[in-house]
């Protein structure tokens, strides 16, 4: 317990951690203030006009769907019918995730219910970056400056020391993520209440947002663990940054281009970003042009990967890195 307390204090007073926290607060403050300044409470006239515009848009969608059905039945002139596919599902309003609403037509009005998910994605992205960098530098700086050696002279139990460091890091990050999320979403909820619109937040809204947040926090912990593990394996913070940069350039960009050039089926399945997307959004919707080769008529070539597979891949990767880091740290000569 003393070791965890000491590590927690060491983590909290690190200049890099303090800098990242300051950046976090600054980014949040800038976003919140910009939103507050750029938003206003809509007048009854604005609301009425927006509702009318949304109704017209919904009617237009329905009309398109009906024309598609007519084209399928053959009651539409051929030159017009050619622009519709044989299957009209894509135009069916009932199949859409959401229908146009008045909020879509209110300019300069912040709508919390509409904006909460994008805002949360931004928060998660920042926290993932924060977690990765703090995780990597926390152990990387200790390894390269001899801090770990000092500690091991005091506590010559490598696995316990390493585990305490990782545990402290993950615990602290969880607390920071919870506090940052509450402050961030709370600030925008207040903006929505006072200088915009709260939007429709009943029914599935909060559970859905909560699920996304929980997935995001897990992703932050994965990122921190991966940064910590790679920096341990490479003995310094730069190893983690280098590894991620190299992966992004060589694999996500380079290999993606090669796969597209040689037309490898389901090339996206080889990309880590696919599984990050699947985990965070619940389902990765992907397109594979090779499945439509030789198909006449409409073919969207899409397929989905679920969050379960995303979680399994992320767990396997992070778990593998962590086991390798523990094994290396346990046996390594500290010179």
């Amino acid at each position: 317990m003393n070791l965890v307390r000491a590590e927690l204090e060491r983590l909290a007073v690190r200049r890099f951690v303090q800098l990242m926290l300051a950046l976090l607060v600054l980014a949040f403050a800038v976003t919140a203030v910009t939103t507050l300044v750029g938003s206003h409470r809509p007048s009854p006239t604005e609301v009425a006009e927006a509702q009318q515009a949304a109704a017209q848009e919904r009617q237009a969608l329905e009309a398109t769907y009906q024309r598609c059905l007519a084209a399928v039945r053959g009651t539409l002139p051929p030159e017009e019918a050619d622009s519709f596919p044989d299957d009209c599902t894509a135009f069916d309003s009932a199949q859409r995730d959401r229908l146009p609403v008045a909020a879509d037509h209110l300019q300069g009005v912040f709508n919390f219910a509409n904006q909460a998910r994008p805002l949360l994605y931004f928060l998660i992205l920042f926290l993932v970056l924060f977690g990765f960098l703090v995780g990597a530098s926390y152990i990387g700086a200790d390894l390269s400056t001899g801090g770990v050696v000092n500690l091991l002279i005091w506590r010559p139990r490598r696995i316990a020391v390493f585990g305490a460091k990782l545990g402290t890091l993950l615990g602290a990050l969880t607390v920071v993520s919870v506090l940052a999320s509450a402050a961030y979403l709370g600030a925008f909820w207040l903006v929505g209440q006072t200088a915009g619109m709260p939007g429709v937040t009943d029914g599935d809204f909060w559970p859905s947002l909560g699920l996304l947040w929980a997935r995001g926090v897990v992703l932050v912990l994965f990122a921190a663990t991966a940064g910590f593990a790679i920096a341990t394996l490479g003995r310094r913070t730069a190893a983690a940054l280098g590894a991620v940069t190299a992966y992004a350039v060589v694999w996500e960009l380079g290999l993606r281009v090669v796969m597209e050039v040689v037309n490898i089926p389901r090339g996206e399945d080889w990309m880590l970003s696919t599984y990050l997307d699947a985990w965070l959004t619940g389902e990765a919707r992907l397109a594979d042009a090779t499945t439509c080769q030789g198909v006449s008529g409409y073919c969207d070539g899409s397929y989905q990967l679920g969050w379960g597979l995303g979680l399994a891949v992320l767990l396997a990767l992070t778990g593998g890195l962590t086991v390798a880091a523990f094994a290396a740290f346990r046996r390594r000569d500290l010179i």
Partner: peptide, 8 residues
């Protein structure tokens, strides 16, 4: 202090 804490 941090070393003292870690070492009890």
């Amino acid at each position: 202090r941090l070393l003292a804490l870690a070492g009890g």
